[in-house]
Amino acid sequence: MRIAHVLQLATSTPLVALERDGALYDVAELERQFGTKLADIPGVSDFHTRVVALRCAGLHALDDRLLSGDRPAAAQLHLDAILWLPPCATDRAAYIQLGPYARDAALPWYRFGNSRALLGHAAAIPFPALEDEPDYELNLAALLYEDLRRAPPEEVERAIAGYTVLNDWTARSLEARSQARGLPPSEAKDFATQLGPVLVTPDELGPVEVLRTQVRVDAETRSCSRIGEWTFALPESVAYISNQVELRAGDVVGAGRVFGGSAVRRVPYGASVELMIERVGRLTGKPVRGPALLPWRRP
């Protein structure tokens, strides 16, 4: 199943949608068309409620109808009339980013990112105004729909609601300055991170370790490693995190940059950057120079 979170521009209403063969279908309208029991429950169209709290209740049945060819035209969304949102609830999610690792690393490492700066597919990415080295980082991300505390890898696997593409945008010159001062890379990363366009459930995706990846910057294609060439498997890394902190249903975990998944040359402002993970999807974004900093100290 492929689940989207979009904003219908005509009504400014966030929607849960299902994607099939490149088309998007409004879940609430599908339920009205098919007469399902969930159609009239207040709040059920909220992404966190339907996907996380209710564990995709009823969505598989709707997707089966789509797969069978029952696709009501009234439920189809026009792609030019929506804004893609990240496939999570940014007001409820913690965002944890793993790696990248040295190949001989003994333990996973992670940082907490800025979930309020999670953006969706096809977004313009406002970099810090003085940054001259915008860069991308290709990741796979997992959305959890169970709380995890001191969880073994098997429990982690059962807690993953789905996977999506993640671009951990990075301001490289700011990152270098932070590293030189022994500081965390907050300024270099917390301005924006992209997710999407859809959340793909494990039953549809199968093993993620074999998935191929690719990056396209304007017309130039750049190859990367397969997803599974991490130092640690994703369930192992999440299990390690759960020994340190309690993870909550709705949290997003980035699996760590794939090898080759960042630029070897500067990405120019205004370039179209497309990250692809086989069977998961294509996530596009465009780095733009953000507004100048306002004075933050009194004269």
Rank of each mutant, 00 (worst) to 15 (best):
R20M: 10
T36E: 06
P42E: 07
A249C: 12
E204I: 01
P287C: 02
A57Y: 01
Q194P: 04
G22E: 03
I96A: 06
L183S: 03
S45K: 04
L67Y: 11
L62G: 05
P287H: 04
V264A: 12
R177C: 10
K189V: 00
G35C: 10
D46F: 02
T90R: 04
A233C: 10
P202H: 11
A292C: 05
R181V: 08
P126F: 03
E154S: 15
A123H: 13
A129R: 13
A161V: 14
R65V: 00
R65K: 13
A39M: 07
P128R: 00
P72F: 05
A39N: 10
D168C: 05
V258R: 06
R257P: 02
A239C: 13
P134D: 08
A102Q: 13
G254V: 05
A188L: 06
P197C: 08
V156I: 12
D91M: 04
F47T: 02
R65D: 00
E187C: 00
A10E: 14
A23Q: 15
A73M: 07
G113M: 01
G22N: 09
R279A: 04
Y95C: 00
E146A: 15
S262A: 13
H78Y: 03
H48M: 02
A159N: 12
D190S: 09
P86Y: 03
G43Y: 04
E175A: 15
M276F: 06
A271C: 08
D251T: 08
P184G: 10
R20A: 07
A117I: 00
T13M: 04
V198N: 11
T164A: 09
N139R: 06
A23R: 11
T13F: 00
A53L: 13
D46E: 13
V273H: 06
R92C: 02
G22S: 07
R265S: 14
D218V: 04
F34A: 00
T164F: 13
I160D: 11
E175V: 10
L7T: 07
E157Y: 08
A53G: 01
H121D: 15
T11P: 06
V215D: 06
A81H: 12
R265N: 12
A129D: 13
F34H: 04
W169G: 01
L234M: 12
L24N: 04
L85M: 05
D168T: 05
R149I: 14
V288F: 11
A161H: 04
D40S: 10
D80R: 05
A17S: 08
V208D: 07
R71H: 10
L205I: 05
P100H: 08
D40C: 01
Y136P: 00
T11W: 03
S178E: 15
L143G: 01
L9I: 14
A102P: 03
L119T: 02
A249L: 09
A73R: 12
S12C: 08
L30T: 09
L18P: 03
K189W: 12
P134S: 07
A17T: 04
V258W: 06
F112R: 11
A249R: 09
L293W: 12
L66Q: 03
A188C: 10
R297I: 08
L119H: 01
V165R: 09
S242D: 11
S173N: 13
P299W: 09
N243V: 01
D168N: 13
A171K: 11
V258G: 14
R65G: 00
Y136A: 00
